Computed example of a mutant assay.
Amino acid sequence: MGTYVPLSLRRKIVIALDAEQLLPANLIAEHEPVADETTESTRNRYSTFKTVAWVKANIIRATEDHVFLVTALTNGGAIDKSTMAVMWDSLFSEQDAHIDRKQAAEAALGRLSQALSAVGVSCTTEVLLGSPAEKILEYVHLHRGELLVVQYPVRGPVARSLTYSWADWCVQSAECPTVVVKQSDLPDNVAVALDPPLPTTSADMTSAEPVDSE
């Protein structure tokens, strides 16, 4: 076991997660549920766990770092809880008819934080409201982040060619070194930070194992 480092002296790592991958799709934009909504939501959630697991395995020094898990929402709104009950019933104990996006994001970040804490990583979570690029950069500055890790948004070729994503702006403007994590760059067998592997018949999804503690 290494020497304990006070929180004030730890390296501060900000992990900025893409809201569209952190939350079920029907919590991002108001629309009618589609047939494969649950599968798509599960895959998105799995990709976020996979990102955090990769950062844990390759960047975080558990006894020397403090991690800030953040995401940014551009709007609020509410969605009927029944449309996401299959995948998210374990996140909510209350019986409210509607769950807002901020509450859902806080719950999701909370589960990731618990998983990191279980393997000895000090962690803080926060849901930011507003422009993701602006709010995340402000957050990094406010908390004197020493490393920013960005989960790159999943975007189509047209969107990539016409506009910058919030992640691109963070890379260009962050006051500290930035690491961009793209799902296509992660190995299929990267350990999952929490929850069972994505239920599927695909071999690349069934081989994941929990993160080992240090």
Score class of each variant (00 low, 15 high):
residue 94 E to P: 03
residue 193 A to D: 06
residue 199 P to F: 05
residue 183 Q to H: 09
residue 34 V to Q: 09
residue 145 G to Y: 12
residue 116 L to S: 03
residue 95 Q to V: 14
residue 117 S to K: 13
residue 87 M to S: 15
residue 8 S to R: 12
residue 106 E to S: 05
residue 15 I to E: 01
residue 7 L to E: 15
residue 148 L to Y: 04
residue 213 S to P: 09
residue 134 E to T: 15
residue 191 A to F: 05
residue 210 P to V: 07
residue 65 D to E: 05
residue 105 A to H: 02
residue 209 E to Y: 08
residue 17 L to A: 00
residue 196 P to Q: 12
residue 63 T to I: 10
residue 146 E to H: 02
residue 76 G to Q: 08
residue 78 A to L: 13
residue 95 Q to L: 14
residue 194 L to N: 15
residue 211 V to E: 00
residue 174 A to K: 07
residue 16 A to I: 05
residue 165 S to A: 12
residue 27 L to E: 05
residue 159 A to M: 13
residue 10 R to V: 02
residue 116 L to E: 05
residue 49 F to C: 11
residue 160 R to D: 10
residue 94 E to H: 09
residue 172 Q to E: 14
residue 139 Y to E: 01
residue 184 S to D: 13
residue 91 L to Y: 07
residue 211 V to D: 00
residue 127 V to H: 02
residue 21 Q to K: 03
residue 174 A to S: 06
residue 201 T to H: 10
residue 57 A to L: 14
residue 118 A to L: 07
residue 56 K to E: 14
residue 29 A to Y: 15
residue 51 T to C: 05
residue 122 S to I: 11
residue 125 T to P: 03
residue 166 W to A: 04
residue 146 E to D: 04
residue 69 L to T: 04
residue 43 R to G: 09
residue 38 T to Y: 08
residue 180 V to F: 05
residue 61 R to P: 05
residue 135 K to Q: 08
residue 199 P to D: 10
residue 7 L to R: 14
residue 169 W to Q: 12
residue 198 L to R: 14
residue 202 S to E: 15
residue 92 F to W: 02
residue 71 T to G: 00
residue 72 A to D: 04
residue 85 A to K: 09
residue 68 F to Q: 11
residue 93 S to Y: 11
residue 140 V to P: 09
residue 105 A to D: 03
residue 50 K to W: 07
residue 116 L to R: 06
residue 179 V to N: 07
residue 149 V to C: 06
residue 4 Y to N: 10
residue 28 I to K: 01
residue 197 P to G: 02
residue 167 A to G: 07
residue 105 A to S: 02
residue 87 M to Y: 04
residue 157 P to N: 07
residue 86 V to E: 13
residue 174 A to Y: 00
residue 157 P to L: 06
residue 208 A to W: 13
residue 210 P to E: 01
residue 141 H to S: 12
residue 45 R to D: 00
residue 95 Q to T: 15
residue 50 K to Q: 06
residue 212 D to C: 11
residue 160 R to M: 10
residue 90 S to Q: 13
residue 57 A to R: 12
residue 20 E to I: 05
residue 76 G to A: 14
residue 197 P to I: 07
residue 38 T to E: 10
residue 160 R to F: 08
residue 66 H to S: 10
residue 193 A to K: 06
residue 39 T to Y: 14
residue 163 T to I: 02
residue 62 A to F: 04
residue 45 R to Y: 05
residue 178 T to R: 01
residue 182 K to L: 10
residue 166 W to N: 03
residue 35 A to H: 12
residue 33 P to H: 02
residue 125 T to I: 00
residue 155 R to H: 01
residue 164 Y to V: 10
residue 196 P to A: 15
residue 125 T to V: 04
residue 92 F to E: 07
residue 202 S to V: 14
residue 185 D to C: 06
residue 80 D to N: 09
residue 199 P to T: 00
residue 89 D to V: 07
residue 116 L to N: 02
residue 59 I to Y: 04
residue 108 A to C: 04
residue 11 R to Q: 08
residue 212 D to W: 12
